[in-house]
Amino acid sequence: MKTTSPNVKISIRKLFKVFGEDPVNILPLLYDGIDKAELQKSSGHVLALNNINIDIFDGLITVIMGLSGSGKSTLVRHMNRLIEPTSGKILMDGNDIMDYGDYELRQLRQNRMSMVFQKFALMPHQTVLENTLMAPIVRGENLEKATENGLRWLKRVDLEGSEQAYPHQLSGGMQQRVGLARALTSNAEIMLMDEAFSALDPLIRTSMQDLLLQLQQDLHKTIIHITHDLDEALKLADHLVILKDGFVVQQGEPQHILLKPSDPYIEEFVSDINRARVLKIRSVMEEGSRRKVSHGSINANISLETLIAIAEGDTSRSYEVEDGGNTIGTISMQEVFQALVRYDIQHK
């Protein structure tokens, strides 16, 4: 979880993307704040991204969430310039990648970024192992060493024994694990995941999410994960960005967004969430308080659901909250139950 404030890896500033015949001349209208529907009506241009300003933190999972048409897939493709912005800056470790020429851009894609795709995008004419070795092959590395590395990652994603199979012989979940192994074998510090789990059925999706979290515990890669599934977003995200119609509605820590939605759109969005499972003690407790408690201490990172189980549903109890051996606050069961009430009902 989050500790000290992490470094910014990628920061996107004033990014606009307009699809249409003459996007550049449309820009002044956008600076004046024209909205999507109006722009489409008056000029036939489609506004995909509207003044995006976000920071992606080093070593964390940033989830960009939005419904279809919100521009989330377009946004992630800007980070390796598969799509060129109409205007704006994309800074990576302080360098604007918009200034990169063909060669530098290719170097960036080969060495520093990997990508996992919604539709897997595995080469159907290559074996699982050949697919996994895509990045080292493109870089022209020594194949023997790369193969060793590739096999290690295939084993890590539980695909040992399928190295010589072709993608069409595998199930969807297995294919996406090949996609994941391919991204990991590239050994890039940044991993872009474009709705990587959306095409999988729910059980497989959950196990892939767990796999990703496990891997991330050791790897600490900078992961940008795109999804339309709020449960997935809340499960994976260290930093959550919510997009709607091409602009950022709210961004921040997921718990914070859940407890303090800034906008009716997000309130509606989060209203169906199982709050007991998603909210952590840390976000609900009274921070730094030294109240007298009726019972012992509990970990700050467990969910409210777990705490209710520990307290056996007894509303009169209260606990001390500890994190890494230090007491950081207290929590009463009353606070726990209040936090379960939806934001819109709380503030009626």
Binding site: N80, L82, L105, R106, Q107, L108, R109, Q110, N111, M113, S114, M115, F117, K119, A121, L122, M123, P124, H125, M134, A135, I137, V138, R139, S186, L192
Partner: peptide, 27 residues
């Protein structure tokens, strides 16, 4: 040739020549 595969080839930084020889012609 499937646009998703072309996109994957580009995302991993293939040159136009690598893409042609390894992806487009075989497919």
């Amino acid at each position: 040739v499937d646009k998703n595969l072309i996109e994957a080839a580009d995302a991993y930084g293939m040159t136009a020549r690598q893409r042609l020889v390894n992806v487009e012609i075989p497919l």
